[in-house]
Design a protein around this nucleic acid. Structure first.
Lengths: 177, 177
DNA sequence: GAACTTAACTCTGATAATCAGAGTGAAGCA
DNA sequence: TGCTTCACTCTGATTATCAGAGTTAAGTTC
């Protein structure tokens, strides 16, 4: 599938892979720590670590001999996922589904001690851009399917706004059966 | 699990849920479009849509009667995931695993036409913060497990730097067998 | 020196999810 | 009369995940 988001999803594998990258990026490195932290079973854990290694997100490294023991370290590519982690934490914090009194994790600027957040900026000037002014369009790497998605979405938007605000009140009826 | 990232992961469910949110946030709304776009089977697709609805990320709305037909729209909570999508696309673009000549999707500022990117800013002043100056610490919502993760990670970092650069050259040996 | 612990796994057998694809029902179109 | 669209449900085979037991090699405790 021609989509950068799908590429990242594919590299992570699934929930377990993502949870493992969270722990690895927080600084855990050892099998037993990862198992305790995530609660994954041995079969799933060793499979996922292998997969993350095959996808170039972590490196398996011996940290002791007699007996040989190994730890797992994020590669530079794996470290790119810090951005993803930050986004997930930020979204989860605003949702606060578990109704906590505060966030479990805080990202802070080591120089000022103040909290940091993700924001959209102009790619060149680095000036802030408000989310309302951001649009998505096909890039030059887009294939026919991606172009179809965007055109279909644009068509639906047009049909929706043509019909006017009258049709904006759909009812969210419970499913039959 | 007390972790905002895990909350988001739980709400999305899995790869299919995430892929569906991508399409819904791009503007697709109908079952058949989603099926064609994601390639999910009917069983998986209807199950995941139900799950996303149950988790409050999408709303199922009737858009026609005789016969009744329904479409799926992201809720405000679902729209929060745009940040996640943006992060995934940005990471996937820099990886460029498929060796494309350009990105499949572009996020642009509608006023200037220029590309936008995610950046870390001071939560209050909105000034840019470089990734190197960002640290993670326990927030007041952290439980014992989260505190253990951070302490364990700090202990490993300390042990690693105490041993000095000599131990920094681990070997990435292939697995036996 | 016999037993217990730690770490990083592999293996097993039962349960649960996913798959491709066929089928359904209500309507419009030819 | 039959042909298509849309939003699904259902089926039977394959695949993944689960809890938990077992393995290997070493150090630590009684």
């Amino acid at each position: 599938m021609v989509c950068s988001a799908a590429d990242v999803l594919g590299a992570l594998g699934d929930r377990w892979g993502t949870l493992l990258m969270r722990d690895l990026l927080l600084g855990l490195t050892r099998y037993e720590d990862l198992r305790r932290s995530t609660g994954a079973t041995n079969a799933t854990l060793s499979d996922r670590l292998r997969e993350l290694e095959a996808n170039g997100l972590v490196e398996r490294r011996r940290y002791q001999t007699r007996p040989d023991r190994y730890e797992y370290l994020p590669t530079p590519r794996g470290r790119d996922l810090k951005l993803l982690l930050t986004a997930m934490v930020q979204i989860g914090d605003t949702w606060n589904l578990a109704d906590r009194e505060g966030p479990p994790l805080r990202f802070v600027d080591t120089r000022t001690g103040r909290r940091v957040a993700l924001a959209l900026v102009d790619a060149e000037t680095r000036e802030l851009v408000s989310a309302g002014h951001v649009a998505v369009e096909a890039g030059c790497g887009a294939d026919a399917v991606m172009r179809w998605r965007l055109e279909r979405a644009a068509a639906l938007r047009k049909a929706g706004s043509d019909a006017g605000p009258v049709s904006a009140d759909g009812d969210a009826t419970p499913r039959a059966k």
